[in-house]
């Protein structure tokens, strides 16, 4: 009994050291599922690979199509590469108590091995802190953002898909109700969620106002150049740009997509979804 207790203590200690120290990246198991979301997050032009693993015998509860419940032991990986060399891998794991653990692993320069990044991240390499992980992932109905009904099966207008994938995890009624700005789409009633997005954007006063501006609107129909939505996407100022973290390079294609949408498809306030 005493030996067993000692063994448990030693194993726990070893696990703690592995988490706190230079723990190597646990690779996705052979039966992990590779997936690609339809509306990916812009991450400074890096290419990404993603995997999901659900424990054998367990399954995802999809009874709420827009808030999938992942079983304990679920783990997801996202590997970021630049010029074919992996630079960072992020993992999300659902623990036995139901909580989620977010870890980030930094690859060496040659992309041959990755070790656990410190809790505060590595700012000079753009690797986020654990608190930054929560800022995005805990604002959505389920923290594995790319593996959902909307991201895997729902056809949205490209601009709405872009806003969902890049903004909707924070800009939704549950995470930031004070803003009344909903860019999250729903698979159950995409027409209703699109209408909600239009209503919260078009012609609505913006809380954020550029310096010197007495007034500003989130989206001015037909005028991307006057829309705060676009100006904040285009901003290089870290205090102004959107998204506020995880991005340092403007997504020129994304800006063009949203600008065309505002210019060509939103001519009247609260117009019906195209």
């Amino acid at each position: 009994m005493r030996a067993m207790f000692a063994r448990i203590v030693l194993l726990s200690l070893a696990a703690s050291i592995a988490i706190a120290g230079d723990a190597p990246l646990p690779q996705p198991p052979a039966d992990a599922v590779a997936f690609t979301p339809r509306y990916p997050l812009w991450t400074d032009g890096m290419s990404k690979r993603r995997w999901l693993h659900v424990p054998k015998g367990a399954s995802i509860d999809k009874s709420d199509p827009d808030a999938w419940e992942f079983p304990r032991g679920t783990r997801a990986w996202k590997e970021f590469s630049r010029d074919g060399v992996p630079v960072e891998t992020r993992t999300i794991e659902r623990l036995a108590d139901g909580s989620w653990r977010y870890l980030t692993y930094a690859w060496n320069a040659s992309g041959t091995a990755a070790t656990l990044a410190p809790e505060d991240g590595i700012p000079e390499r753009g690797i986020p802190s654990r608190a930054d992980c929560l800022a995005c992932h805990e604002g959505a109905p389920a923290p594995i953002l790319g593996y959902s009904a909307v991201q895997l099966t729902t056809s949205l207008a490209p601009a709405l898909g872009y806003l969902h994938g890049n903004c909707g995890h924070c800009h939704n009624d549950a995470a930031l109700p004070a803003l009344d700005l909903t860019l999250q789409q729903r698979s159950t009633d995409p027409k209703a969620s699109a209408a909600r997005t239009y209503a919260s954007l078009v012609g609505r006063a913006s809380r954020f106002r550029p310096h010197g501006a007495a007034d500003a609107q989130r989206l001015v129909a037909g005028h991307p150049e006057h829309s705060v939505l676009v100006s904040r996407m285009k901003s290089r100022d870290p205090l102004t740009r959107m998204p506020p973290l995880g991005v340092s390079v403007v997504d020129a294609e994304g800006v063009a997509l949203i600008s065309r949408w505002i210019e060509q498809q939103i001519q009247q306030p609260q117009e019906e979804a195209p």
């Binding site: 800022a135 924070c170 930031l176 506020p244 973290l245």
Partner: peptide, 13 residues
Amino acid sequence: RTGRHMGRGREIL
């Protein structure tokens, strides 16, 4: 707790 506006936005300075 996070030092970010509403826990999600820009950093509090």
